[in-house]
Design a protein around this nucleic acid. Structure first.
Length: 492
RNA sequence: CGGGAUGUAGCGCAGUUGGUAGCGCACUACGUUCGGGACGUAGGGGUCGUCCGUUCGAGUCGGAUCAUCCCGACCA
């Protein structure tokens, strides 16, 4: 088959790229490291946006928008922050083009050089804190709970569709608080919102935890993360929430008068998830037949394929399908009738499977005569014939079941690939085989770095909710005492 | 940015010792088909990534450059 996707067993990376392109989600753009998100892919992103946005608003946040360009001077005020991003910034130096004096196309007009270069935002902490400075005078102005949906640019060395593109879409929340405790609570609140979203909508079991100091966001005092396991056993950081302390407030001189009338620096958080979540979806659930979308995110939850020979059959079946569609839509399901008359049913079946539509209904003359419909579920590829009368009521339950089954499958896969490990030789043997290893760690950056150098494994997080990790033990590498296990894995 | 590979039609590829580009799928038209990726017949589509060089002549040889993929370093 010409359109068949690469098999996962052959090359996981290639399979992933292939699946994204073939399933019509996205493709490489002509611009280095950038991607074109195609309508079908964007519809999924829009659904993610809508769900997350509701969650943010329900927890008291508001949307706002800040500029794309950041003056270089802003960017350099927080030393750690600039060190973390300096190597991957796109910089605007000029504001005008002119015709090439030699007559070949256009060139940058040297007389249009900017006095101060502008950085295309790799993240917006700096410009936002420069703005917040003017918004905050008193404790009464706090907290500020803003989120923005935006694009950011990071000039990565190596790119990968959805996982690491030069430009990507995300949301970034930036909050300002009167106390450290309040900011820390916000950090936890948001990481938990991400975890709920990943589990309940993406159907991906994630581990919530703290990053080790080495893996922290540049400029943060604490970084919390949701870590997911892909089907090759590698880890993917799917979302982060940072406690920024007073670092940015101090860099941008954001002070407020507290209830006692004293000047105090503001406490900050920032948190974000990106189009990387799309990559997580593909790699967590996809199979060799294509994408597998959780019903909660699928732009099309039910696709109907008519099967017919004659015009009369065609008309009768479509009549029935349109009335079914109406009933299903009344129940809140999104439905598509694939009425393309130039393609045969088998082709359509394969194509919708590739696109990951959770439920397919096929109806032909036999069904019409018997009052039945063929129901196919994408996750298990099971096919059953069902009475049309009971269909509308059972689809909701079926979609719920598919959502749960997809989650459970991913959960079981992870459970089968997470193990405790207390022996360094065993660690070295197992870490490359697609496992998350729960190991004791002495808490030092040196040990973490040595383990990384020897095995490429990093500490994905110090878990807070997924595994019971608090126990006495000895560091897997150094043998020094430890009170808690952490998650080691090879990451994307 | 270091190491390796690739770049020829929308996609996947072939192209011999240098001689002016081909196959499969897709596409267009017509017909037969239609319950798991149909078939026949007839068509359309490429300045061979880009630039420079060698040569009477370059898809083919040399150099540069750009892009993509894989492995590192970096990262949501």
């Amino acid at each position: 088959m010409a359109d068949q996707i690469t098999k996962r067993s052959e090359n996981y990376s290639q399979w992933y790229n292939d699946l994204i392109v073939k399933a019509d989600l996205a493709e490489q753009s002509a611009v280095r490291g950038c991607m074109v998100i195609k309508p079908y892919g964007y519809a999924i992103w829009e659904k993610m946006q809508r769900i997350l946005d509701d969650m943010f608003k329900a927890s008291g946040h508001q949307n706002a928008y800040f500029p794309l360009f950041i003056p270089k001077s802003f960017f350099s005020r927080e030393a750690e922050h600039v060190a973390g991003f300096a190597k991957e910034c796109a910089v605007v130096t000029h504001h005008r083009l002119m015709n090439d004096p030699d007559g070949k196309g256009v060139v940058v007009d040297p007389s249009a050089k900017l006095e101060e270069e502008l950085i295309v935002r790799p993240t917006s902490e700096t410009i936002i804190w420069n703005t917040y400075k003017n918004w905050i005078k008193s404790w009464r102005d706090l907290p500020i709970l803003c989120n923005q949906w935006a694009n950011v640019v990071r000039w990565e060395m190596r790119t990968r569709l959805f996982l690491r593109t030069a430009e990507f879409l995300w949301q970034e929340g930036h909050t300002a608080h009167a106390t450290a405790q309040e900011a820390q609570e916000e950090t936890e609140r948001m990481v938990n919102i991400y975890a709920d979203f990943a589990r309940n909508f993406l159907a991906i079991p994630v581990i919530v935890g703290h990053k080790s100091p080495n893996e922290r966001f540049a400029g943060a005092l604490d970084t919390m993360t949701i870590e997911a396991m892909m089907q090759d056993g590698k880890a993917l950081q799917a979302g982060t929430s940072h406690f920024l302390g007073q670092n940015f407030a101090k860099s941008f001189d954001v002070q407020f008068t507290n209830r006692e009338g004293k000047q105090e620096y503001v406490w900050a958080t920032s948190w974000g998830v990106s189009t990387r979540l799309m990559g997580a979806l593909v790699m967590a659930h996809g199979d060799d037949n294509g994408l597998v979308l959780p019903p909660a995110l699928a732009p099309i939850q039910v696709v109907m394929v008519p099967i017919y020979k004659t015009a009369e059959e065609h008309e009768a079946i479509l009549d029935k399908m349109y009335s079914l569609k109406k009933e299903l839509e009344a129940k809140g399901h999104s439905v598509k009738i694939d009425d393309r008359d130039t393609l045969r049913p088998g082709f359509k079946f394969a194509e919708w499977e590739l696109k990951g539509v959770p439920v397919r209904l096929a109806m032909g003359p036999r069904d019409l005569a018997g009052g039945t419909v063929e129901v196919h579920r994408r996750d298990t590829m099971e096919k059953v014939t069902m009475a049309i009368d009971s269909l509308v009521d059972s689809i909701g339950k079926l979609l719920d079941d598919i959502q749960k089954t997809i989650y459970q499958k991913a959960f079981d896969f992870r459970a089968a690939n997470v193990e405790k490990c207390d022996d360094w030789e065993e660690f070295k043997a197992k870490i490359g085989t697609g496992k998350f290893l729960l190991c004791h760690w002495d808490g030092t950056a040196e040990t973490e770095q040595k383990i990384k150098d020897e095995t490429k494994a990093t500490i994905r997080c110090i878990p807070v909710d997924s595994f019971v990790c608090e126990e006495e033990g000895r560091d897997i590498y150094s043998g020094k005492p430890s009170r808690c296990r952490v998650v080691f894995a090879i990451a994307y």
